[in-house]
Amino acid sequence: MLKIKELYVTINDQEILKGINLEVNPGELHAIMGPNGSGKSTLASVLAGREEVNVTSGSIEYNGEDLLEMDPEERAHKGVFLGFQYPVEIPGVSMVNFMKTAVNEQRKQRGMEELSASDFLKLMREKSEFVGLKNNLTNRAVNEGFSGGEKKRNEIFQMAMLDPALSILDETDSGLDIDALKAVANGVNKLKRKDNATVVITHYQRLLDYIIPDFVHVLYKGKIVKSSDKSLALELEEKGYDWLEKEVEV
Protein backbone atom coordinates (compact mmCIF):
# COMPACT_ATOMS: atom_id res chain seq x y z
CA MET A 1 0.00 0.00 0.00
CA LEU A 2 2.66 2.50 1.07
CA LYS A 3 6.29 2.33 -0.01
CA ILE A 4 8.70 5.00 1.17
CA LYS A 5 12.13 4.77 -0.40
CA GLU A 6 15.26 6.69 0.56
CA LEU A 7 13.25 9.76 1.49
CA TYR A 8 15.14 12.98 2.22
CA VAL A 9 13.18 15.97 3.43
CA THR A 10 14.08 19.52 4.40
CA ILE A 11 12.09 22.23 6.15
CA ASN A 12 13.42 25.76 5.73
CA ASP A 13 16.60 24.31 4.22
CA GLN A 14 17.24 22.19 7.25
CA GLU A 15 17.48 18.48 6.60
CA ILE A 16 15.01 16.65 8.83
CA LEU A 17 14.53 13.24 7.26
CA LYS A 18 17.67 11.55 6.05
CA GLY A 19 16.84 8.50 4.02
CA ILE A 20 13.64 6.91 5.31
CA ASN A 21 12.60 3.47 4.10
CA LEU A 22 9.26 2.07 5.15
CA GLU A 23 6.70 -0.32 3.74
CA VAL A 24 3.15 -0.59 5.02
CA ASN A 25 0.76 -3.30 3.81
CA PRO A 26 -3.01 -3.62 4.18
CA GLY A 27 -4.06 -5.00 7.53
CA GLU A 28 -0.94 -3.76 9.30
CA LEU A 29 -0.56 -1.43 12.21
CA HIS A 30 2.78 0.30 12.49
CA ALA A 31 4.05 2.35 15.38
CA ILE A 32 6.76 4.93 14.79
CA MET A 33 8.48 5.97 17.95
CA GLY A 34 11.28 8.37 18.63
CA PRO A 35 12.46 11.20 20.81
CA ASN A 36 11.46 14.82 20.22
CA GLY A 37 13.02 16.31 17.12
CA SER A 38 13.65 12.97 15.47
CA GLY A 39 11.42 13.86 12.50
CA LYS A 40 8.20 12.01 13.41
CA SER A 41 5.83 14.85 12.68
CA THR A 42 7.73 15.75 9.52
CA LEU A 43 7.09 12.25 8.28
CA ALA A 44 3.37 12.70 8.95
CA SER A 45 3.42 16.09 7.20
CA VAL A 46 5.12 14.77 4.11
CA LEU A 47 2.58 11.97 3.82
CA ALA A 48 -0.35 14.40 4.12
CA GLY A 49 1.26 16.90 1.73
CA ARG A 50 1.98 19.98 3.79
CA GLU A 51 3.42 22.79 1.71
CA GLU A 52 6.38 23.75 3.85
CA VAL A 53 7.80 20.26 3.68
CA ASN A 54 10.32 19.93 0.90
CA VAL A 55 11.24 16.52 -0.51
CA THR A 56 14.77 16.68 -1.87
CA SER A 57 15.06 13.05 -2.96
CA GLY A 58 13.46 9.66 -2.64
CA SER A 59 9.96 8.50 -3.42
CA ILE A 60 6.63 7.63 -1.85
CA GLU A 61 4.41 5.18 -3.63
CA TYR A 62 0.80 4.81 -2.55
CA ASN A 63 -1.19 1.99 -4.13
CA GLY A 64 1.14 2.10 -7.09
CA GLU A 65 0.81 5.86 -7.57
CA ASP A 66 3.26 8.64 -6.83
CA LEU A 67 1.89 10.17 -3.64
CA LEU A 68 4.14 13.22 -3.87
CA GLU A 69 2.46 14.26 -7.12
CA MET A 70 -0.92 14.60 -5.44
CA ASP A 71 -2.50 17.64 -3.75
CA PRO A 72 -3.45 17.18 -0.11
CA GLU A 73 -7.15 16.92 -0.98
CA GLU A 74 -6.45 14.34 -3.68
CA ARG A 75 -4.58 12.22 -1.15
CA ALA A 76 -7.57 12.52 1.15
CA HIS A 77 -9.96 11.45 -1.60
CA LYS A 78 -7.77 8.41 -2.20
CA GLY A 79 -8.00 7.38 1.42
CA VAL A 80 -5.06 9.01 3.20
CA PHE A 81 -6.04 10.38 6.59
CA LEU A 82 -3.94 12.39 9.01
CA GLY A 83 -4.93 12.60 12.64
CA PHE A 84 -3.48 15.96 13.65
CA GLN A 85 -1.21 16.46 16.62
CA TYR A 86 -2.79 19.89 17.05
CA PRO A 87 -6.31 19.80 15.57
CA VAL A 88 -7.26 23.20 14.18
CA GLU A 89 -10.21 25.29 15.34
CA ILE A 90 -12.54 26.68 12.70
CA PRO A 91 -14.92 29.10 14.45
CA GLY A 92 -18.50 29.25 13.25
CA VAL A 93 -18.25 26.13 11.09
CA SER A 94 -20.27 23.33 12.65
CA MET A 95 -18.84 19.82 12.76
CA VAL A 96 -21.95 18.71 10.89
CA ASN A 97 -21.34 21.13 8.04
CA PHE A 98 -17.62 20.41 7.99
CA MET A 99 -18.01 16.66 7.90
CA LYS A 100 -20.83 16.81 5.41
CA THR A 101 -18.67 18.83 3.04
CA ALA A 102 -15.74 16.44 3.53
CA VAL A 103 -17.77 13.24 3.13
CA ASN A 104 -19.63 14.49 0.07
CA GLU A 105 -16.48 15.83 -1.53
CA GLN A 106 -14.90 12.42 -1.13
CA ARG A 107 -17.99 10.71 -2.54
CA LYS A 108 -18.05 13.06 -5.48
CA GLN A 109 -14.44 12.27 -6.31
CA ARG A 110 -15.23 8.59 -6.15
CA GLY A 111 -18.18 8.99 -8.49
CA MET A 112 -20.75 8.40 -5.78
CA GLU A 113 -23.87 10.40 -5.10
CA GLU A 114 -24.03 12.86 -2.22
CA LEU A 115 -25.55 11.56 0.96
CA SER A 116 -28.99 12.87 1.78
CA ALA A 117 -29.28 14.99 4.89
CA SER A 118 -31.00 12.23 6.83
CA ASP A 119 -28.54 9.52 5.76
CA PHE A 120 -25.72 11.80 6.66
CA LEU A 121 -27.05 12.57 10.12
CA LYS A 122 -27.58 8.86 10.67
CA LEU A 123 -23.97 8.19 9.75
CA MET A 124 -22.84 10.98 12.08
CA ARG A 125 -24.77 9.52 14.98
CA GLU A 126 -23.55 6.02 14.29
CA LYS A 127 -19.91 6.99 14.10
CA SER A 128 -19.96 9.31 17.07
CA GLU A 129 -21.38 6.49 19.19
CA PHE A 130 -18.78 4.18 17.70
CA VAL A 131 -15.90 6.29 18.94
CA GLY A 132 -17.66 7.44 22.09
CA LEU A 133 -17.84 11.10 21.12
CA LYS A 134 -20.61 12.92 22.89
CA ASN A 135 -23.35 13.95 20.52
CA ASN A 136 -23.26 17.58 21.57
CA LEU A 137 -19.67 17.87 20.37
CA THR A 138 -20.78 17.20 16.83
CA ASN A 139 -23.16 20.14 17.09
CA ARG A 140 -20.38 22.54 17.98
CA ALA A 141 -17.99 24.41 15.71
CA VAL A 142 -14.96 22.45 14.51
CA ASN A 143 -12.71 21.95 17.56
CA GLU A 144 -13.74 25.33 18.96
CA GLY A 145 -13.57 25.26 22.73
CA PHE A 146 -12.90 21.51 22.72
CA SER A 147 -10.65 20.20 25.48
CA GLY A 148 -7.44 18.48 24.45
CA GLY A 149 -9.04 15.08 24.87
CA GLU A 150 -12.14 16.07 22.94
CA LYS A 151 -10.04 17.30 20.07
CA LYS A 152 -8.21 14.00 19.79
CA ARG A 153 -11.40 12.00 20.03
CA ASN A 154 -12.79 14.23 17.34
CA GLU A 155 -9.89 13.24 15.10
CA ILE A 156 -10.74 9.57 15.57
CA PHE A 157 -14.38 10.39 14.92
CA GLN A 158 -13.45 12.02 11.61
CA MET A 159 -11.33 9.00 10.80
CA ALA A 160 -14.38 6.80 11.37
CA MET A 161 -16.52 9.07 9.20
CA LEU A 162 -14.10 9.12 6.27
CA ASP A 163 -13.15 5.44 6.57
CA PRO A 164 -9.62 5.89 5.19
CA ALA A 165 -7.39 3.18 3.71
CA LEU A 166 -4.28 4.61 5.33
CA SER A 167 -4.44 6.50 8.61
CA ILE A 168 -1.49 8.36 10.04
CA LEU A 169 -2.07 9.37 13.63
CA ASP A 170 0.40 12.01 14.68
CA GLU A 171 0.93 12.01 18.46
CA THR A 172 -2.73 11.35 18.94
CA ASP A 173 -1.96 10.19 22.46
CA SER A 174 -0.09 13.27 23.66
CA GLY A 175 -1.76 15.19 26.44
CA LEU A 176 -4.49 12.64 27.03
CA ASP A 177 -5.67 11.38 30.38
CA ILE A 178 -6.06 7.66 30.73
CA ASP A 179 -9.77 7.59 29.83
CA ALA A 180 -9.29 9.60 26.68
CA LEU A 181 -6.28 7.48 25.79
CA LYS A 182 -8.37 4.33 26.13
CA ALA A 183 -11.16 5.85 24.07
CA VAL A 184 -8.78 6.81 21.30
CA ALA A 185 -7.09 3.41 21.32
CA ASN A 186 -10.44 1.69 21.37
CA GLY A 187 -11.51 3.67 18.30
CA VAL A 188 -8.32 2.79 16.43
CA ASN A 189 -8.69 -0.91 17.28
CA LYS A 190 -12.30 -0.99 16.19
CA LEU A 191 -11.49 0.68 12.88
CA LYS A 192 -8.73 -1.79 12.08
CA ARG A 193 -9.56 -4.10 9.19
CA LYS A 194 -7.79 -6.39 6.75
CA ASP A 195 -7.99 -3.84 3.99
CA ASN A 196 -6.76 -0.78 5.81
CA ALA A 197 -3.57 0.22 7.55
CA THR A 198 -2.63 2.54 10.37
CA VAL A 199 0.59 4.29 11.24
CA VAL A 200 0.68 5.50 14.82
CA ILE A 201 3.30 8.11 15.59
CA THR A 202 4.10 8.44 19.27
CA HIS A 203 6.66 9.49 21.76
CA TYR A 204 5.48 7.25 24.55
CA GLN A 205 4.90 3.57 24.75
CA ARG A 206 1.78 3.88 26.90
CA LEU A 207 -0.54 4.10 23.89
CA LEU A 208 0.88 0.75 22.86
CA ASP A 209 -0.55 -0.78 26.01
CA TYR A 210 -3.92 -0.43 24.31
CA ILE A 211 -3.02 -0.62 20.63
CA ILE A 212 -1.02 -3.65 19.66
CA PRO A 213 1.24 -2.79 16.72
CA ASP A 214 2.45 -5.36 14.21
CA PHE A 215 5.66 -3.41 13.79
CA VAL A 216 7.53 -0.87 15.82
CA HIS A 217 10.06 1.45 14.19
CA VAL A 218 12.39 3.77 15.93
CA LEU A 219 12.99 7.06 14.22
CA TYR A 220 16.17 8.73 15.38
CA LYS A 221 17.83 11.79 13.92
CA GLY A 222 15.91 11.50 10.69
CA LYS A 223 16.46 7.81 10.14
CA ILE A 224 14.67 4.62 11.03
CA VAL A 225 17.37 2.98 13.11
CA LYS A 226 15.56 -0.08 14.34
CA SER A 227 12.47 -2.04 13.34
CA SER A 228 11.03 -4.97 15.21
CA ASP A 229 7.81 -6.29 16.74
CA LYS A 230 6.09 -4.79 19.77
CA SER A 231 8.78 -5.94 22.17
CA LEU A 232 10.88 -3.05 20.91
CA ALA A 233 8.42 -0.62 22.37
CA LEU A 234 8.81 -2.18 25.78
CA GLU A 235 12.55 -2.06 25.50
CA LEU A 236 12.35 1.65 24.69
CA GLU A 237 10.11 2.24 27.64
CA GLU A 238 12.58 0.56 29.91
CA LYS A 239 15.81 2.01 28.61
CA GLY A 240 14.70 5.32 27.10
CA TYR A 241 16.16 6.50 23.81
CA ASP A 242 19.72 7.13 24.94
CA TRP A 243 21.02 3.63 24.42
CA LEU A 244 20.20 3.98 20.73
CA GLU A 245 22.89 6.57 20.38
CA LYS A 246 25.60 3.98 20.88
CA GLU A 247 23.95 1.44 18.65
CA VAL A 248 23.50 3.94 15.85
CA GLU A 249 27.04 5.23 16.01
CA VAL A 250 28.33 1.73 15.47
Partner: peptide
Protein backbone atom coordinates in the same frame (compact mmCIF):
# COMPACT_ATOMS: atom_id res chain seq x y z
CA UNK B 1 -4.74 30.49 8.69
CA UNK B 2 -2.83 28.25 6.40
CA UNK B 3 -3.42 25.69 9.13
CA UNK B 4 -7.18 25.96 8.82
CA UNK B 5 -7.01 25.53 5.08
CA UNK B 6 -4.63 22.60 5.31
CA UNK B 7 -6.89 20.97 7.85
CA UNK B 8 -9.79 21.22 5.38
CA UNK B 9 -7.58 20.04 2.50
CA UNK B 10 -6.57 17.00 4.48
CA UNK B 11 -10.22 16.12 4.90
CA UNK B 12 -10.66 16.30 1.14
CA UNK B 13 -12.04 19.84 0.91
CA UNK B 14 -10.26 21.89 -1.74
CA UNK B 15 -8.90 25.33 -0.95
CA UNK B 16 -11.69 27.28 -2.57
CA UNK B 17 -14.42 25.37 -0.77
CA UNK B 18 -12.39 25.65 2.43
CA UNK B 19 -12.32 29.43 2.19
CA UNK B 20 -16.03 29.47 1.56
CA UNK B 21 -16.57 27.33 4.61
CA UNK B 22 -14.28 29.35 6.86
CA UNK B 23 -15.61 32.73 5.73
CA UNK B 24 -19.22 31.69 6.06
CA UNK B 25 -18.46 30.33 9.50
CA UNK B 26 -16.88 33.62 10.45
CA UNK B 27 -19.86 35.60 9.17
CA UNK B 28 -22.48 33.21 10.47
CA UNK B 29 -23.83 35.44 13.22
Amino acid sequence: GEDQIFYCNQRGIDTEAAIGLIVNGYAKE
